[in-house]
Simulated assay, not measured.
Amino acid sequence: MQLAPADRRSTYLAALTQEIERKLQKALISPGQRPELLQKLFADAALEIEDRARDMILKKDEDEIASADDVTETLCFYELFEVSVETSEVLLRYGSALVHGASNVFWIDIQANRRRFFSLFSYLLEEVALVPDRSNKISLQARRDLYLLLSRFLFFYKLDDLLEPFLKHFPAYPNAFLVGGPEDIFVIELSDQLQKLKVEPVLLHYLSRMGALKGLELRMATSTRLKACLYSFTSPGGPMYPTRAVRHAAWDTLDLLFPVGRYPRHVISVFFRLLYPWYWPSSCWNFIVTCVTTVVYYILRVIISSWENIRKSKRS
């Protein structure tokens, strides 16, 4: 018998719950394999369920659940967080587990420069944070932690086009009178995140998305904090030891977000570069290569332009 969509979804979630309980029991009775089993379960809870695994779950109760071929929606373990909980203590644990668990799996993506857990992040942002009816289900503290978490990974998962509505849904923070509004809190979390990044492609990706901050009204303290964070990536040596690509990306971001004072910053940077004589040979070589490349491309553009003009004159 075909079940109604609401009943079918409820049955799916019940089946998923039983599957998680079964894996937890298996981890409980297998101390030697417990870390591995829990790690796999934790990863499963943050990912969409593959078709093969979904078939195995659904076939366990074929009398009540429709066949997998009739399923048109995506099943996700983490949608177990949509259940209604009456006890505030349990609700607090739900919210804390959601935020801390999501933070761990997002860092797994950061370290590997992959986006396996994009579906979880998209769900937390678009289906929870931007939907007051759902975000209000978890405690206020967990909700605040969730928004801070999303602020740190929003650029990584390329969802900065949702920055404006995301900022509008920010909850109230007790220290807002000290740090500022949602824009300031977002930039502070983002600056702290940049300082923690050690994977060069990820850092370059973050810097490439920073243009979304242009036009935000920030407090002077927040603006200075962001400048200092970006400026720390523009010089070779400690404590960041940024690569040449990172230094150039940081300069481009600084010039884009803070065009006022651009030239004095570069002059000061050249002065401090003199403090690192072991970088002079590479700097001189890169300068020569850049100059030669620029001249060559300029000559090619002139030749191509002249050739196009000759062809047009012949046609006319």
Rank of each mutant, 00 (worst) to 15 (best):
M1Y: 15
R9W: 10
L13R: 10
K26D: 12
L28M: 13
S30P: 05
Q33T: 13
Q39A: 14
K40M: 08
F42L: 10
A43M: 09
A45D: 00
A45F: 01
A46Y: 04
E50K: 12
D51Q: 08
A53F: 02
K59E: 12
S67G: 15
L80E: 04
F81C: 01
E82H: 12
E82V: 05
E89H: 05
E89T: 02
V90D: 15
H100I: 04
H100V: 08
N104A: 15
F117A: 04
F118L: 07
L120M: 13
F121A: 01
S122M: 06
E127W: 08
V128G: 03
L140K: 04
Q141T: 15
A142Y: 01
F153D: 00
L162Q: 01
P165M: 09
K168W: 01
P171T: 06
Y173R: 11
P174K: 05
P174G: 02
G180S: 13
G181F: 03
P182Q: 05
V187C: 02
I188D: 03
E189A: 15
S191Q: 03
S191M: 02
Q195N: 11
E200N: 07
P201Q: 12
G211I: 06
G211L: 06
G215A: 03
G215L: 04
E217W: 03
L218I: 14
L218D: 02
R219S: 09
A221G: 10
S223V: 01
K227C: 11
K227F: 07
K227H: 08
A228C: 09
L230V: 05
T234G: 00
P236D: 01
G237N: 08
Y241L: 03
H248Q: 14
A249F: 01
W251E: 09
D252K: 08
T253M: 05
D255L: 14
L257G: 00
V267C: 08
F271E: 03
F272P: 00
R273F: 00
R273M: 01
L274A: 03
Y276N: 09
P277G: 05
Y279R: 08
W280L: 06
S282C: 04
S282N: 05
S282R: 11
S282W: 05
C284T: 11
F287E: 03
I288C: 15
V289Y: 09
C291N: 07
C291G: 10
V295G: 06
V296E: 10
Y298M: 11
V302F: 11
W307H: 14
E308A: 15
E308Q: 15
R311H: 09
K312Y: 09
K312R: 15
S313C: 04
K314G: 10
